[in-house]
């Protein structure tokens, strides 16, 4: 339909009515191409983030300080893989194949959350990833439980149920460090200093600079704006940091009585743009690792397929 057509497209009207009436759009419903493309891009990016996000944590499995922390970390990483699966499946309802999505990731055409391009240098980073990175992800995902694409919304509901454990174990691990020796406390503070600002960029650019926000909000794919979600995260996290005696590395951070919210300093968007366009500390490493894991696992998929063919042949005979 071109813009100067006066004829109303009944399919489009039905679609827009569903959105207006808080109905979810389901896979076989008619939907505008741009909606399909947008939701597909968002689900694929979200799925890739879950999977790539396993790497900074995987870095510490063999070096977790106790067996207890090690099994927790393993369970958490296993969850992240599962969350990737829920999201890939949601994307597959729109006809995208897993192979295409993985290829697009490897070709650099599909993105993932740029937070995972930062390294996990010390054990304290594992606490920060749970407390802050998952904490930020939860704020976003709770909001997305009401997203207008049904399969995406249902994946978010499942994920949110499991995500609370991730944040709590991260905060608890951080609390242990913050209440430990001076060295442990310093390690926790150092990790907070490195992760705080990158975590704030997880919500995306300010509303005034966000390329996709307007249309996504109109389609109710996105329910709340980047700035609203970021503010919510800051407001809930600052008291948590204060409680364990860690200092948020922002000299401009200050409670604003009038707004009933924290004012905070300027985010370094140049760094964000650098990282998102491939020049973060670990971009190449993350992608290369994913490619290698995919390649090295090929023989397993080949063997499973060969076995299945053999089994089928045996059944016929």
């Amino acid at each position: 339909m071109t813009e100067n057509t006066t004829q109303i497209d009944p399919q489009l009207t039905t679609f827009e009515d569903k959105i207006a009436n808080e109905q979810r759009i389901e896979p076989r419903d008619w939907m505008p191409d741009a909606f399909r493309k947008t939701v597909l891009r968002q689900m694929s990016q979200h799925a890739h983030s879950e999977v790539i996000g396993m790497q900074p944590e995987g870095n510490w499995i063999t070096r977790a300080p106790t067996l207890h922390r090690k099994v927790i970390l393993l369970a958490k990483i296993q969850d992240e893989g599962g969350h990737g699966l829920y999201l890939y499946s949601a994307a597959e309802t729109l006809g995208a194949t897993r192979e295409e999505m993985v290829q697009a990731l490897h070709d650099g055409k599909a993105k993932y959350a740029s937070i995972f391009n930062y390294p996990s240098l010390t054990w304290a980073d594992i606490g920060m990833i749970g407390w802050l990175v998952d904490g930020a992800a939860i704020v976003n995902q709770v909001s997305l439980q009401r997203t207008s694409y049904g399969p995406y919304s249902r994946a978010m509901i499942r994920i949110c149920k499991e995500e609370s454990f991730h944040q709590r174990q991260g905060y608890e691990a951080t609390m242990v460090l913050a209440r430990g020796s001076n060295e442990q406390k310093a390690m926790a503070q150092d990790a907070l200093n490195r992760w705080w600002w990158p975590v704030l960029t997880m919500f995306g650019p300010h509303d005034t600079d966000s390329a996709h926000t307007g249309q996504s909000m109109k389609w109710k794919l996105k329910r709340e704006s980047n700035d609203v979600l970021r503010q919510r995260f800051i407001d809930q996290t600052v008291p948590q940091a204060e409680f364990i005696g860690l200092e948020i590395p922002d000299p401009d951070l200050k409670w604003n009585e009038e707004r009933g919210a924290y004012d905070f300093g300027a985010i370094d968007w140049d760094e964000f743009m650098q990282v998102i366009s491939g020049n973060g500390p670990c971009n190449r490493q993350r992608l290369a690792h994913h490619v290698r894991a995919q390649d090295e696992g090929q023989w397993v998929r080949d063997a499973m397929h060969a076995y299945e063919l053999k089994r089928q042949a045996r059944e016929v005979a």
């Binding site: 609370s164 454990f165 174990q169």
Partner: peptide, 19 residues
Amino acid sequence: DKPYRHATHYKLPKEVDNM
């Protein structure tokens, strides 16, 4: 035998228990 997969496994002080 994996109670640590549940959020309730992590005991937090009440001031921050709402996460």
